[in-house]
């Protein structure tokens, strides 16, 4: 069993719903160390994504991700637009031509997304960004697969690692984005971008657990 294109589309819509549900929460986090628009911006972006996805017939998962990325780029407004936009577009290049995804593809997608965010944001692990949720999630997922844990179990581990990453962002100083202007005063606050990344990964994991078991 694996995740097919309509399931992928559904997961994208569910990410939008999660973002929307957490709009105030994300914006509040951003109020502390940024410009208080992260939740609002992402909600706007994913609403546009929902509209675009409902108008496309494609079952090429690469095209779906690319469409999501381009829509975010054009509709988010804040830094998360080009960052998530690039992440999804890179994932789109990875998944080009695919009509279903297996566990190994999840690795490929996360690697592509991480590469995109690093390039676009000129950021690295430990800069208090989305990467501090994404990179630990990928590492935990790969480690779990190596240990022979089921894909569902590995996804759970990835989400746990992302959450630990979010908590880690409370302890470190921001080195990228508006929050970096605060210097040491950014310590003590969790990063909104890492938080939204965690929420997305949690949504993906939940969706996979209920929709189907990707093949190893």
């Amino acid at each position: 069993m694996s995740l097919n294109s309509s399931q992928v589309k559904k997961v994208m819509l569910e990410i939008g719903e999660t973002v929307e549900k957490n709009k105030e929460f994300l914006t509040e986090l951003d109020l502390a160390i940024g410009d208080a628009d992260h939740g609002i911006n992402l909600t706007k972006g994913f609403r546009a994504v929902a509209t675009k996805l409902s108008a496309t017939e494609t079952d090429d998962i690469g095209e779906i991700f690319t469409l999501v990325g381009m829509t975010l780029v054009g509709n988010v407004g804040g830094a998360s637009g080009p960052l998530y936009g690039t992440a999804f577009m890179r994932a789109g290049s990875y998944a080009a031509g695919k009509t279903s995804l297996i566990a190994d593809d999840f690795v490929g997608i996360l690697e592509a997304a991480i590469g995109g965010i690093k390039m676009r944001g000129k950021a690295e692990a430990g800069d208090k960004t989305m990467l501090d949720a994404l990179i630990p999630a990928l590492n935990a997922f790969q480690e779990a697969l190596k240990q022979g844990i089921t894909v569902h179990g590995a996804l759970t581990k990835a989400v746990e690692a992302a959450l630990a990453g979010v908590n880690y962002t409370k302890e470190i100083q921001a080195r990228k984005g508006r929050a970096s202007y605060l210097g040491a005063r950014s310590i003590g606050h969790q990063d909104p971008g890492a938080t939204s990344t965690y929420l997305m990964l949690r949504t993906i994991s939940k969706a996979v657990q209920t929709q189907g078991q990707p093949e190893k």
Binding site: D35, D37, I40, N41, K44, V73, G74, N75, V76, G77, G78, G81, P82, G85
Partner: peptide, 13 residues
Amino acid sequence: GGTKDGRLGTDAE
């Protein structure tokens, strides 16, 4: 300057 719907932000398009 700004987003399509008039918020603060930038838009690559």
